[in-house]
Write a protein that binds this DNA or RNA. Structure first.
Lengths: 116, 116
DNA sequence: CCATACAGTTACTTTTCCGTGCCTACTTTA
DNA sequence: TAAAGTAGGCACGGAAAAGTAACTGTATGG
């Protein structure tokens, strides 16, 4: 990671959110409440185990989600949003509003965004 | 790009912002006002010509920035934020506030975010 | 007369990401 | 007894993203 543009903390958050699945995971967690690993995987169709694990670790490391492991024999691990995660959810909502407005203006119809 | 998680328009915006330089470009444009290509390149230290061009094209395609080319002989091209870009700037500000709060809590000190 | 700046483009190379498949260790169900 | 689920870890490999470098063409400054 050579590129450390500025010491912008906002950039760190963005880098955190950036993964293709990250926002979706946060969305599910905030919409459906705390979920277990398997349920989360089913709720985010198409994500691989590897990706889900990695993203969850990263989000946990950033204090955005909590992880609760029940030491039962088939271990049951549950993830949920922390207050910090709620912060992000709010920004995501704001972004969603903008997206709605843009969509009404037809930004996404003639595709320039999704495919570079 | 196989992964098209949902048809979430918010996701499209995030994908737009994701590039390592994108937010920084928007920031500069909103902070210093419209800039010419060369000035922008100097304002974003470390970015390559290629990246800057690509990002600008993408942002322009999304209607986030405008591009004005003066057909003088050494062509002078100026870029600036559109109202749509201002929308993003606001979200970025909100994100910046969160980042500040998190930083105060020391999220970025014990690094888990920047380096995975 | 040669270098430089303007605003890129194109090709080449490198790096990183991300999906796939195989493994754990135990339990419940068929 | 065998298959499947639970929550991942680890390694390999292909694809995509990003960096580097060289090139464009004109006009101006030294």
């Amino acid at each position: 990671m050579v590129r450390t543009p500025p010491q912008c903390p906002m950039d760190s958050i963005l880098r955190l959110l950036m993964g293709p699945w990250t926002t979706y995971i946060i969305w599910v967690l905030s919409d459906q409440g705390p979920q277990r690993f398997g349920a989360l995987k089913r709720a985010v169709p198409g994500i691989s185990t590897r990706m889900l694990t990695e993203r969850l670790r990263m989000l946990q490391g950033a204090g955005v989600i909590w992880r609760e492991q029940a030491e039962t024999i088939p271990p049951a691990v549950t993830y949920g949003l922390t207050p910090r995660g709620d912060d992000l959810r709010n920004v995501l909502d704001a972004l969603g509003d903008i997206a709605e407005r843009w969509k009404a203006d037809g930004v996404f119809d003639d595709d320039d965004v999704g495919a570079a």
